[in-house]
Nucleic acid binder design. Sequence first.
DNA 1: CTGAATCCGGGATGATACTG
DNA 2: CAGTATCATCCCGGATTCAG
Lengths: 125, 125
Amino acid sequence: MAESAEPAADVESSCEEVRGILSRVGEKWAPQVMARLDSGPRRFNELLRLEAPITPRMLTVTLRGLESDGLVTRTVHPTVPPQVEYGLTRAGRELFGIVHTVVNWTDKNLEAVHAARAAYKTTNG
Amino acid sequence: MAESAEPAADVESSCEEVRGILSRVGEKWAPQVMARLDSGPRRFNELLRLEAPITPRMLTVTLRGLESDGLVTRTVHPTVPPQVEYGLTRAGRELFGIVHTVVNWTDKNLEAVHAARAAYKTTNG
DNA sequence: CTGAATCCGGGATGATACTG
DNA sequence: CAGTATCATCCCGGATTCAG
């Protein structure tokens, strides 16, 4: 499915940039948080509960990282008590779509991956 | 493009597995090495030269990791001097196709990402 | 409610040198 | 040729505590 039928930029060209994005969505909690936000905007404590046992610190770190790459928006409503809403940007939704293809790939290749790991462990240490 | 039109397995279901794969292809040298192997099998020192300044150790670590997940094959030809060929498996080629869509996404959203980073750095520290 | 500050352990990455 | 061994370093992620 995901064969590059498009112009397909070279991997080398924007290599470090791609690595940055790959690392970003590869962060421990990034995929879950993006999945959650993909179904609509959420507040901090909502995410905190839904993604438990994530800690406040890691949720902040994750959100800040995604925000700094333009994948997530952070909207502060100056109310009392404070209220902050997070949501995916257009780019963020697009990228999450790609992450989803990885989910599908993993689902499809789960057995093969496990078999490879078992075989590798047997052959080596 | 990459909107999930397929059955689309849930992100939560095989969550740790997906994270493992994401981390695997997110390793520093994994994308480059996979790109190189996507154009045909290569020998250790070939990769070492082509991906310089990678060190022998990191090339080994990267290849072993990819091999253990069934993305790369390692073929030893019992000749003298020793000859070892690395190549992508079918699953590896598929997964690299997905990585390539990330490359395209990055290419397309480069400006937006940079703008977001600049804005974030201005607003915060 | 929404974070920030601090400390810490472990894994990822790298430099260098050596080997079957 | 194709790695391995060792040591140093750095950053991610978690626990805990505190603040606007």
